[in-house]
């Protein structure tokens, strides 16, 4: 099974991810404009784009644990997934900015409302990651510095989960489940060093 997947990925290029990524966004806006999303389309689009963002971010986070624990190697798609995640987070943020709050009191919202502060922080952190998601930047920065910068993805995931946890009213399971999934994926990539390793060295 994993061999089959790994063999397949050698033949499946990454460019379709970039080509297909915008389609759901175009589709949901089309539905919103033509009345297919109910009576409050702006909120619906905003929430759906937020949820999709989290899915894509989680997919990117899953790649290393998949390889290390299950032997499935999807590493070549990780950059495309990361760039797609940034595209969705930006679409989510712009929907909020333009269609929801309509540029009113934006700065006050960012400063005063913790879930917006957290969401904006995640977007801000993602920006340099997206801008350096190319071979030229990787060469220019050097591998070590580039990898260090891109570890900020972990912070983005944590902030993304927190953004949702802070947002919901009452006690709701869904954001808690997502938070647990993210926590598990983060823990799964930690290298456990036995406490006695110092003695052996």
């Amino acid at each position: 099974m994993k061999k089959a997947i790994n063999r397949l990925t050698r033949h499946v290029p990454t460019w379709p991810i970039y080509a297909l990524a915008p389609l759901p966004v175009i589709w949901i806006y089309y539905e919103g404009i033509t009345g297919g999303l109910g009576v409050d389309p702006a909120k619906k689009i905003e929430h759906q784009l937020g949820l999709w963002s989290l899915w894509i971010l989680i997919a990117g986070l899953a790649i290393t644990p998949l390889r290390e624990h299950l032997g499935v190697n999807l590493l070549k798609y990780r950059r495309a997934i990361g760039v797609t995640a940034f595209f969705y987070v930006m679409a989510h943020m712009l929907t909020w900015l333009v269609l929801d709050v309509q540029f009113q009191n934006v700065w006050a919202d960012i400063v005063k409302r913790p879930y917006i502060t957290v969401g904006m922080a995640a977007f801000a952190i993602m920006t340099p990651l997206a801008l350096t998601s190319n071979n030229w930047s990787l060469r220019k920065m050097g591998g070590a510095a580039w990898r260090k910068l891109h570890k900020a993805t972990y912070a983005v995931l944590i902030l993304g989960a927190l953004h949702w946890l802070l947002l919901v009213k009452g006690f709701q399971w869904e954001p808690i489940i997502y938070s647990v999934v993210i926590a598990v994926l983060l823990l799964a990539r930690m290298k456990w060093r036995p406490a006695t390793s110092g003695l052996k060295a």
Binding site: G32, I33, V39, A42, L99, D100, V101, Q102, P114, L167
Partner: peptide
């Protein structure tokens, strides 16, 4: 008087479509 999560200064009117003004 703001709610901690939302400014209460304006509101979205349901039924105005995707581009309804607050």
């Amino acid at each position: 008087v703001d709610h901690p999560r939302w400014s209460q200064a304006s509101e979205r009117v349901i039924g105005g479509g995707l581009f309804a003004q607050r």
